[in-house]
Design a protein around this nucleic acid. Structure first.
Lengths: 143, 143
DNA sequence: TATTGTTATACTCTATAACTATA
DNA sequence: TATAGTTATAGAGTATAACAATA
């Protein structure tokens, strides 16, 4: 089936492009000391409010031990607060600290500087294309 | 400027989506023992023929020491051959071995299985979108 | 001296397995 | 027993700095 072949080729092209761009992005972390993964968690807490570790791990599609590391780093940096859920003390609830909120606010102006600069060089059509494709990529990641 | 704000938001959405999907893809490596990064290098050697280490590193947008690791793993797996360039013995030329070529041939049928399955669930329009965006992502990675 | 590639070292991100605390 | 989270351990992928071999 030629449709299937096209799909396999597309999968290959797409994956290679994704890897290269992700690698490039990781090299461009703007703020030393706060990684892209950590910023992603801060953004999730900002969008969805306080969450426990399992919820954060599910949201970010990582295993709990990976999230333990990320939240530990964020807590040490003073960007999130942790508290035990009074109803079930096995749950650890994380939320943005005032400093974390401030970080996101400041970061919003300068983050993604490299990618934004590249996007500015694109045509309007290309930006529309990327805008349309972002939620699709996210859906693929969560399927 | 609202255009600039939109660009920053787009950069953020796009980056988060890229990270999640890349993470998901890395978790789905089909063939145990050969990683996605290694397959990417095999593909580059297949497309562009023999290359030295610096050329491979530039092609994959990594630093030379990173590529040294990758080629060492591929050589140990018997998937690439190395030889000294007779004209300049500082250059190490890498090429696909017969086994590496065979690996790519077999892999072509089964690789990207997870992503291909997901892509098959998409509409034709969505696949067209991804097909159009793949080279754009690659261009961004190389800019 | 300059260039190519490797080695030494370290950090990020991820995972699985085993453990602790709580329910 | 079952669940939530942490710790221990490991491996892939990346980087910079220092080095060896070759030009």
């Amino acid at each position: 089936m030629s449709t299937k072949v096209a799909t396999l080729e597309l999968a290959s092209e797409l994956r290679v492009a994704l890897m290269r761009l992700t690698r490039r992005l990781r090299a461009e972390r703007v703020d030393q000391g706060v990684t892209l993964t950590q910023i992603s968690v801060l953004g999730a807490l900002d969008r969805h409010g306080a969450m426990n570790l399992a919820q954060l791990a599910a949201q970010e599609r990582v295993q709990p031990p990976s999230m333990t590391r990320t939240t530990a780093a964020l807590e040490e940096a003073g960007l999130v607060d942790r508290s035990a859920d009074p109803n079930d003390r096995r749950h650890t609830v994380f939320q943005l600290s005032a400093q974390g909120r401030q970080f996101l606010r400041e970061d919003r102006r300068r983050r993604e500087a490299w990618l934004a600069d590249r996007l500015d060089e694109l045509t309007t059509e290309e930006r529309v294309l990327l805008h349309d494709v972002a939620p699709l990529l996210d859906r693929l990641a969560q399927s």
